[in-house]
């Protein structure tokens, strides 16, 4: 067994997700991502279960594994109890671990995601928080969301939230002692190490692309090259 396949096999999601794929393509038929992107989960499972190291490495460095939306519609429909979505998660995990994610445009998006989501978790206790929701980054959120964000205290108060307040309630300020526990969990379980590894690899890639790191973060968050979509 090759090194990459061996590493994948240690991931519980891989153990759960890949049993015996018969390559029927039901996962692809039901997949929302396959309808939109040049993406075929059937082929990914086929590649992985062939255990070809070179092909698995190419997959880990490709855009392909980042097209899935993790809706898990494939899980319900697989006639053999596989979960293509879980296999994708294990592939992404390994790509992040090995730094291969910086080899593809969609993979490089892992840095702005990591910065935003883990930053929110460790600083506020929430994955998403009004203090970091910038309406300019979310033009789709409409004028009503801009109104909410520009009048946070009034609107959240009107709607019964406890915005930045003490005690329980929606959007309460989560006590520092609890944020300290989250930090400790990240430190003990490899979360902090993962953040650092993704940042280090991304900084190296930014330098290679001739960008400063802020520019790289913005670029990877916003830029979409041609060639990803089925209708191109």
């Amino acid at each position: 067994m090759g090194k990459l396949y061996d590493l994948l096999s240690r991931d519980y999601r891989f153990k759960e997700g890949l049993k015996t794929c018969i390559n029927c393509g039901t996962c692809t038929a039901i997949c929302p991502a396959a309808e939109f992107y040049k993406y075929d989960p059937r082929k990914i499972l086929d590649t992985v279960q062939r255990k070809d190291e070179a092909e698995i490495e190419a997959l880990l460095k490709s855009d392909t594994i980042w097209y899935c939306g993790e809706c898990m519609s494939c899980v319900t429909r697989c006639p053999r109890g596989n979960a293509a979505g879980l296999v994708i998660m294990s592939l992404r995990n390994l790509s992040a671990q090995l730094g291969y994610f910086t080899c593809s445009e969609k993979g490089r998006q892992l840095w702005p995601l990591t910065k935003m989501l883990t930053g929110n978790i460790l600083h506020t206790g929430y994955c998403v928080h009004p203090s970091t929701f910038n309406p300019d980054d979310h033009p789709e959120s409409g004028p009503v969301s801009r109104w909410v964000i520009e009048n946070k205290d009034e609107v959240f108060g009107r709607l019964g939230a406890n915005y930045q307040g003490k005690g329980p309630g929606a959007l309460r300020r989560i006590p520092q002692e609890d944020l300290d526990e989250l930090q400790a969990i990240f430190d003990v379980t490899g979360g902090s190490e993962r953040i650092a590894a993704v940042e280090d690899a991304s900084r190296r890639k930014a330098a290679e692309m001739g960008m400063d790191f802020d520019e790289y973060t913005k670029y990877t968050f916003e830029h979409c090259s041609p060639g990803h979509f089925n209708n191109e």
Partner: peptide, 12 residues
């Protein structure tokens, strides 16, 4: 959300 955006390990 962080887990399904693949930004943290499963054990975290």
């Amino acid at each position: 959300i962080a887990y399904h955006c693949d930004t943290i390990p499963q054990e975290t």
